[in-house]
Design a binder for these strands. Structure first.
Lengths: 346, 346
DNA sequence: TTGAAAGCGTTACCAT
DNA sequence: ATGGTAACGCTTTCAA
């Protein structure tokens, strides 16, 4: 008899077929009832909706994606989930995607052996788009994704030669703003603390900072290597700066979390911030606004960046994703707080 | 001709069919080559592997899942991505799942209108399991998931009546440990700061704390409502405690992030921690170990909890998931740091 | 060991 | 507006 077919269903999942039988209509009709643009009578639509509700039917998105070729899944590859910078980014991005009906498939690149290890599985899931916040993208990957027509957007990374879209805070301009602010306070001796030495973000902030200092007639700036973007690395770098021969009056850390580590380190050595030394960071993570730190920093235009990323992925409309690779450079805002102050006469 | 069929392939995705044609074998053979347990000659397996490599073929997991009924996707519903407690949890959990070949589909419950709004879409993705870290699970949801045979594990939440598995830190025992520690330091006047008033975590910690205090002969403990688990809420609660008539000597905040807000608040009022007031939290997030805070706290057995969750999901083996709902209560460790000190004679 | 064919649950096209 | 049917890309019997 006809009933046997659906009877051997493995899991307790209701299919369109069952709803159809219940209503004595064809399975196609059930499908149409869940497609807003399909031509179906209002009456039938509500009948199906009711039956679906009763039986607990929801269309299987996975099966649907096989034919629509859209899974509604966007992969986000994130550096780590310890640095508040990344978690803030993830928070805002996930929220925006969710609002657009897209889901987030999360990949942490730090632990799982880098992007190379992740990329294949990621593509196996037929994601509609990929957001990479921190990892070395190779031209091979770019080519593969382009061939599959899977849009890739680099967030907070700029790899000029690669024909991949990128959304970035204007790090150079941010560095310049910082220099102007600190020079305006009368400081003479500066230091810049490098995060990951190969990260474009750190390099660009440094470049903007140093070049603007030079333009203000200050030709020297101590460059201190922290090795990585972390509280501990910032802490250690600050200790070295504090112990150095000529202690800087103002220190620009390449990221907030390093700057906060740095402030703690300076204070642990009895130095007052900003009394003895001014400290600034970059990002404006929530921590930076805490009264203990009150960190002067450059605010990442979070919302705007997330909005542009979603745009470039082309996930909202049914329209084809943006073909040509573009690089968006969004300016950040200088946020003045209590960690910077005027030069003290000595 | 035969070629037309695959020719109208929409996106630049290579299918098993194409690899098969390239090798002059059947599509089934390609499938078998990617199934470790299938019976296929070694020679054929390597031939397929090579051809797949050349063409850039990878099996489509989505299509596979239609028949295997396993997507390899686990949904994680997380309270928010601002509290380091949740991000730490997410970090460890994602890592463990990734190690087991499972991927994380991330849902933030705070912004998107709660679990009720999320649950339907989540199930549409045919996830192999669901981890809920913070949200109100209703019996309806439990029933629906049970019917679908989708394992659900509550992490850091205990809902006794619901026949859903849960993995939890032993909050009562943690509260007791805290009480013993602080009583041992000689303190007499205590306060407990409640996080979310309806959260079982906060209630249990409070219960353990207060009952152990009572056992030590201390019958009164100020209960202060913070309203939510956040830095700001902890800060405000601490200000109220500091301004109160009889200031407590030791304050137990229901979570680390609140405790840290509280420390900042006390210090902003000129109080020394632990000189004037001892502060403790719960979780042991990375922040808690920073020298500025050096927070005495109860360490969540992160790794162990994550391991148990993955276990209960039954995602590792092909074996059927655990049927019976179990509640795992894992004891936390008391971590002594600098935020607590002996009672000062007054 | 391999190939042919029947699904998996859906959408989309073509009739009616 | 509705029903039948062919995909989508894969796994899995069943034959050979």
């Amino acid at each position: 008899m006809k009933g046997t077919k659906a009877g051997r269903r493995g899991l307790g999942r209701v299919t369109a077929e069952e709803v159809a039988r219940r209503l004595g209509v064809s399975q196609s009709t059930i499908s149409r009832a869940f497609s807003p643009s399909a031509s179906i009578s209002d009456e039938m639509r509500t009948r199906v909706a009711n039956a679906a509700m009763e039986l607990g039917y929801q269309p299987n998105i996975i099966a649907r994606s096989l034919i629509t070729r859209r899974t509604g899944i966007v992969a986000i590859v994130i550096g780590n989930l310890v640095d508040p910078f990344y978690t803030t980014l993830l928070d805002i991005l996930t929220d925006r995607l969710q609002a657009g009906g897209k889901q987030t498939l999360l990949f942490s690149s730090s632990r799982a052996g880098g992007l190379d290890a992740i990329m294949p599985t990621l593509l196996q899931y037929q994601v509609d788009g990929i957001v990479i916040t921190s990892a070395a993208v190779t031209s091979d990957m770019a080519r593969i994704c382009a061939k599959r027509e899977t849009p890739v957007v680099l967030l907070n990374r700029n790899v000029p030669g690669l024909d991949i879209s990128a959304v970035c805070c204007d790090n150079v301009q941010g560095g310049r703003q910082m220099a102007r602010h600190l020079v305006g306070l009368g400081h003479k001796r500066f230091a810049f603390v490098v995060g990951q030495p190969d990260a474009s973000t750190s390099l660009e902030r440094q470049q903007g900072f140093v070049s603007e200092l030079a333009q203000a007639g200050i030709s020297s700036c101590v460059i201190e290597q922290a090795g990585e973007y972390s509280y501990e690395a910032g802490y250690e770098a600050a200790l070295r700066l504090a112990a150095g021969a000529s202690r800087p009056e103002a220190v620009f850390f390449a990221s907030d979390i390093m700057a906060i580590g740095g402030m703690d380190a300076f204070r642990s050595r009895g130095l007052s911030v900003p009394g003895d030394i001014s400290v600034v960071g970059f990002n404006d993570v929530p921590l930076a606004a805490w009264p203990t730190y009150a960190l002067t920093t450059v605010r990442h235009p979070w919302e705007q960046m997330a909005a542009r990323v979603v745009d470039l992925l082309g996930v909202d409309a049914a329209a084809a994703p943006v073909r040509k690779a573009v690089t968006e450079l969004i300016p950040g805002d200088l946020i003045l707080r209590g960690s910077t102050g005027p030069r003290r006469d000595q």
